[in-house]
Nucleic acid binder design. Structure first.
Lengths: 130, 130
DNA sequence: TCCTTAATAAGAATAGTTCCTAAATAAATT
DNA sequence: AATTTATTTAGGAACTATTCTTATTAAGGA
């Protein structure tokens, strides 16, 4: 049976407080400040299991580590190619690539991810300063 | 000055013969059979440099390792969540997420990647067999 | 052919993540 | 409340993909 442990509670609360798009490593570092006895393996395992149980979303980005997200409905993201920052983005007209497939190469599509890559405001101004 | 080495020639030819979407590790393994003296570091470095020089495309997928692709124009892909196979896909109506952005969260978009995730035909039939 | 310098082979190092095992602990049972 | 049991944990080892280091090799111009 599934158990409610203090560790899991702290991990989920920390992810919530960090307000999204955190990687397992980021969550671990944040937790480690306040609760140095919670192990890295526990953070990775709890986040992975919660994602498998559908309690949160595991986002696998191209330019950076896996991120965990408590906002469940699928949404598009933009990542900074420089610092790895992640933000949600929305479109003027919604578009579903699965419904628009002309050729699926024999694959069975299940989900999709639209990812934009660019520069975040901070990295953008750093680049201008160079 | 840039030099033309046998190693680079073999690496690029192997990638071409493998007919796309190979990871650096896959290219290394393929080369290692015929030319066991070519080192792993050389394969990784040559592919990375060729991508930086625009000679090929480095695709960074969510569900699998980085892949290198000699087909240059941007195109959408579908990856198998089970075995990591990659295929190109096309859409009935083309759609550019950058032009359709309603909110860019302060980011400067540069490029995008549309990725579908699902099952390849082989993994699909394996699943049915279970 | 000789010389300069970039590219190489081999393996060590790194980073992010997962695995392993004894010990701790939560829930169920008494 | 005490006992039982099965899951979860901490801590570190192990693993994997990739990059770095350094002595050696070889490309291409003179």
């Amino acid at each position: 049976m599934k158990r409610n442990t203090i560790q899991k509670h702290i991990i989920m609360e920390t992810l919530r407080e960090m307000n999204c798009h955190a990687s397992a490593g980021m969550v671990y570092e944040e937790i480690n400040r306040q609760y140095p006895t919670i192990s890295k393996a526990t953070v990775y395992r709890v986040l992975t299991e919660a994602a498998e149980a559908g309690e949160l979303l595991r986002l696998r980005f191209a330019e950076t580590d896996d991120r965990f997200d408590i906002t469940l409905p699928p949404h598009a993201h933009i990542t900074c190619r420089c610092c790895g920052a992640v933000q949600d983005v929305t479109f003027k007209t919604p578009w579903n690539p699965i419904e628009n497939l002309a050729d699926n190469a024999g694959f069975t599509p299940e989900r999709y991810h639209i990812e934009l890559i660019g520069l975040c405001p901070a990295c953008n101004s750093l680049k201008k300063a160079e």
